[in-house]
Amino acid sequence: MSAPAVPSAPLLRIFPVGGYAGRSKMIMMRSALVYRRAWLAIVSGFFEPVFYLFAMGQGLGTYVGTLPGPNDAPLSYAAFIAPGLLAASAMNGAVFDSTFNVFFKLRYERLYDAMLATPLGVVDIALGEIGWALVRGGLYALGFLSLMAVFGLLTSPWALLALPAALLVAFAFAAVGMAATSYMRSWQDFDLVTLATLPMFLFATTFYPLSVYSEPVQRIVQCLPLYHAVELMRGLTTGAVDWSMLWHVGYFVVMIAIGVVIAARRLNALLLR
């Protein structure tokens, strides 16, 4: 951008000029309208972690017995994996919404081009899409937590905070997912998404405690975002809460900040060529 005089308030340097019309709510309403017709897709997303909880908790749990929880009190296997599955489903849902769905709208439906022919800007689009991912993720988390409560897997009132924690986790993954999507060129690149999320789902202490790993592997696992999400959830649902958990919160706040800024800037570069 050479010729035009550009107003340069600090915020406008981080976010694109004219990129925010304050109407991201309209984009969320569009999603709500779409999913009113595709409710099965919404409902099915709720069942995936439930199937895992039931199969692994009930079936495999028979052979696993109890595991040490965050405050070393023994936990049934179901109570151990339930918060892990809650965190993992927050991640998976947010990543799916912000990668596959966004890529399709960006490259194939050219839906964002249509939105940019209206007063909406790229920041509206980024926030609107992330906002919808949060609404959906929030519904799933609420459903899963209710199920946990029914089966007696919540042992502390701190568990009420697991809902906002799930939203925080979903926000972070959606923001980073959307930023990553802006770099994708073809569907083939989505293998990389799988390569990032599947190992986390399997290894970031969702299914077994950190102690099964050797020391160096533990260090690596502790860097993964899903590890922080699982720790956060497991602490809240079992009541093993202390100040150190703010580190986990901080981790996700940083992810959100980086993700949103990159997503908005990259979308700006892609859509406003």
Binding site: L60, T62, Y63, V64, G65, L67, Y77, L202, F203, F207, Y208, V212
Partner: peptide, 13 residues
């Protein structure tokens, strides 16, 4: 490998 550790510790292998 991971589940194996759990199942081994569970004592009903």
């Amino acid at each position: 490998l991971g589940f194996a550790v759990l199942v081994n510790n569970g004592g009903r292998l």
